[in-house]
Design a binder for these strands. Sequence first.
DNA 1: AATGAATGAGATTTCATTCAT
DNA 2: AATGAATGAAATCTCATTCAT
Lengths: 189, 189, 189, 189
Amino acid sequence: MKEDSAKEQRILDTAAELFSRQPFHKVLLSDVARAAAVGKGTLYLYFKSKDDLYFAVLFREFSTLIDSMRRFLDENALGPGEQLAGVVRILAEHFHTTSFNMELLGSVITCPVTDEWKQLRADLWDLFARIIRRGIDKGVFRDEAPDLTARYISGLVRAVCLFAPANADLDSVCRHASGFVLRGLALER
Amino acid sequence: MKEDSAKEQRILDTAAELFSRQPFHKVLLSDVARAAAVGKGTLYLYFKSKDDLYFAVLFREFSTLIDSMRRFLDENALGPGEQLAGVVRILAEHFHTTSFNMELLGSVITCPVTDEWKQLRADLWDLFARIIRRGIDKGVFRDEAPDLTARYISGLVRAVCLFAPANADLDSVCRHASGFVLRGLALER
Amino acid sequence: MKEDSAKEQRILDTAAELFSRQPFHKVLLSDVARAAAVGKGTLYLYFKSKDDLYFAVLFREFSTLIDSMRRFLDENALGPGEQLAGVVRILAEHFHTTSFNMELLGSVITCPVTDEWKQLRADLWDLFARIIRRGIDKGVFRDEAPDLTARYISGLVRAVCLFAPANADLDSVCRHASGFVLRGLALER
Amino acid sequence: MKEDSAKEQRILDTAAELFSRQPFHKVLLSDVARAAAVGKGTLYLYFKSKDDLYFAVLFREFSTLIDSMRRFLDENALGPGEQLAGVVRILAEHFHTTSFNMELLGSVITCPVTDEWKQLRADLWDLFARIIRRGIDKGVFRDEAPDLTARYISGLVRAVCLFAPANADLDSVCRHASGFVLRGLALER
DNA sequence: AATGAATGAGATTTCATTCAT
DNA sequence: AATGAATGAAATCTCATTCAT
């Protein structure tokens, strides 16, 4: 059925763009089709339904994000604090460019609970948890429940981006968010 | 138009319940009407449109929340740290009982930009900012941008509640969230 | 939900008309709606789906037919031969006015196998079987398997109507069909 | 256009199978293509349209049937009664194996009125009419309108097969149908 | 000749909103 | 004020047909 993966990507790109600008029910599949320059039926060649498309967008967005965080960590030999600041920055950029309409992990309630999704979520949390634990091991962080903290760092960053003053530049928002997270993990001295 | 305020409240209660369990587009006005035990047309006596109802729910929910935080602060003579822990707890309870589907400040979901809404938002942020500034004045907090921090504390708490493990009890989640925020505001010693 | 039974009947009338002139997939619900002078959504107030509407038409058509045959039998004190000729005539008129596109019993395969439908089918067959058995009892018919015969008399009449020459008048077609059926049940003398 | 006649036959076989099990609009060309193990586009090399394919199936089915009846008559020197019983049996077998969804002569389902089709229909009717007339000539049948009778014998047999009890075996159904037809043509003695 | 991805007209269905009662 | 049947615009989705490969 699928053959032209480039087309699938184009559809996903377009849909991502539209879903990020409007709530789900205001995004029309005819708009997606037109904007992606494909026939309406073509959408259904690649995606079972509007919901399916929506979650595919979310999934890809999410995967990409995790990949780029991983790459950042792999390609730079940094200390835990710098690592955390770095991934927070990547997250913030993601939320800044991509939409806030898309809850990063999908609403927990609505988004599919397939193994794929569970894995993705676990991956994100694991990524943060590793950084935190490494920091603890190195004696620079302190956290009684790293797994819990890991779970909501992304939500925290989202909140920062979402509610930052309209005129705030990304840099200062990031700096503030990172600072906050880092102090939250700071050793009591 | 409006006359029977009890009925209006019943509609709001019902709608709050439903909107909190499902995304906007899955909540049908016929469901709301049935659950509220009123005719579908009656909804339109009290609310201009589905959007209007949605935002009315949000507004009331939000106002109630702010009120209860204010009351908590007024009725208890506490230090800044305890104040913060207290309002975090109230927030967490709110997110726990009420829905995660309703973005608290809905700033992106293009919620109305009337003066009413601006005021409400300002009130919430101001509430947090005051606590933080009071802490700074008292020499127990440290924050370079209290207004910025104030803006995303609610988002942080939401994230914590949203992504806490299903089996986590509210108490430990609150404790963790408060601890995190408080350390984020801690003086460097 | 339903209140206006007259409207439901109008929809059924219209649909019967259209389904009788064209095969299922050429009958558009927008045509039905327009012809019945109701909104497209109204159809769904009374019928769950296009299939549902189709079978409702069939069911009513069928019930009406059985009723008129029953009434004919009740209101006229006739001998078995005359009874048979009469109901054949009624059947033929039905097929003549109503459509041939609608298989009287619905395609056995496709049409719902609810109790309602089973009952209706049983009623028709019973009606014929009674006449035949009465004829046997009175010594004017002969049939080794009245129940089997009863099952296909309606199909036979349909076939006669369906394949009669275009210019044949209803009377002669009926006469021939009745004659054929009656001889088929005739005593060997 | 057509070249590979074996492939064409395979398509026809497959389509016959599918059309016989479901009504026209439930048979998808993609199903036909998949089941026939050809590409969807290939169907269009052999048939102009879905309708065209449908009628081609019908035509072939019908021709085969007439051929086998003719062969039966040619290869066996039988009296009119035996001839009739024989062709009824062939018809019944046809309806039993092939579908009831395909109206044999499809006269209403606006099947093409080409000379080919007129001829085919005429052939079937003629075949029956000849048998009946031969019976009349031989003094064993009696029928005032053999042409009319000829027209609906096939419909009668179809009805018998269609509505016979599910557990009835073909033999007894045939015997009953033949008996009915033969008595319908019986001399009044 | 053969394919099946792509198409888009048009099908069914939904649901916020209206309005006669 | 209250209703819910009626509406129809607009949404999702289907599928016969085309066409580039």
